[in-house]
Computed example of a mutant assay.
Amino acid sequence: MSAPTTTATAPPGAARPVRRRRGPFAKSLNRRYVITAYLFLLPAFAFFGLMFYLPIANMVSSSFRTGAQADVYAGMDNYTRAFEDAAVRNSFTVTVIFGVATTIGAIVIGLTLALLLNQKLRGRVVFRAALLVPYLTSVAIVGLLWRNILDPQLGILNRLLSDLGLPTQTWLNTHPLATVIGVTLWMTVGYTMVLFLAGLQGIPEEYYEAATVDGAGPWQRFWRITLPLLAPTTLFVSVMAVINGLQAFGQAYIITGGGPAGRTDLYIFHVFNVAFTSRDFGYASALSFLLFLVIVIFTVVQLRVGRRGEVQY
């Protein structure tokens, strides 16, 4: 004789589970949501298409042409010429040195300032704002300011050195690239400082308290806690610094004019001269596309290497 089977019944007054019906109406409503979302995104798509992707496509198309109007098909001649051009190699070398120096300097100086101004110091808000002001100032104004300060004849700095009885310097002739790097760091470290400050304030205090209880000193806490947990911020700062360094233009254009003897001939400044001085727009487009590829490669490598070093506690 088989055992009787029982079925569980819900007690009176209990709420019954709601069954979601995915009928034609639900599918139609979901489709409307998707269409509405794309309609709101359409202006952004149009903006990026017209202002970003279309110029890139035009640049790639022009890179295979030559002539003042880039109207004569030249095949790969512009790219072959770019690899054989000594001026291009010089400008690329100068740009790489500039980019590496500004990236390392931005990380080291920005992190140092962030660590100092993350302490409970009187007037730290004023110092943070003062360090951020140069970044908010246009490159043109910064360039004109420092060109006047460093002018060997009428510059304020040489006048001050002369008043103190110290020898004057020709900053823009003896060390032009170092000068441009220094001006760039003066302009950008405030921004990297703010980013590192945000990263530092996102680290829970419990980690430091636990490390202190375990006997870790300030240096150990920095290496074991602060630096690993700042890896995402450091990665972002380094990627942006490399991109900005490879695309730098205003400093060389305003402060040194690419001289002396091409020692500050940054890559974008060289492309500018090729396009608007020599009026070789096809060759300039090829040089621009090569730089675009270099930036993409650098960015991908940095992201892959940087993400491996991220630590989560």
Score class of each variant (00 low, 15 high):
T6G: 05
A8T: 15
T9V: 14
P12N: 08
P24W: 14
R31T: 12
F40Y: 14
L41R: 06
F48P: 07
F48K: 05
F48Y: 15
L50T: 07
V60N: 04
R65F: 09
T66M: 12
A68F: 12
A70F: 11
Y73V: 14
T80H: 12
T80F: 09
A86W: 10
V88K: 03
V88C: 06
T95E: 04
F98I: 03
A101D: 01
T103E: 08
K120L: 01
G123A: 11
F127C: 02
Y135N: 08
L144M: 11
Q153M: 11
L154A: 14
G155Q: 06
I156E: 05
I156Q: 09
R159D: 09
S162T: 09
T170M: 00
N173D: 12
P176N: 05
L177T: 05
V180S: 10
I181F: 05
I181W: 03
L185H: 08
T188S: 15
L200G: 13
P218H: 07
F222Y: 12
A231V: 02
P232M: 10
T234C: 04
V239K: 10
M240V: 14
V242G: 02
G250D: 15
Q251D: 13
A252K: 11
Y253S: 15
I255T: 00
L266C: 09
Y267G: 01
A284K: 02
A284V: 01
A284C: 00
G306A: 09
G306T: 05
G309M: 14
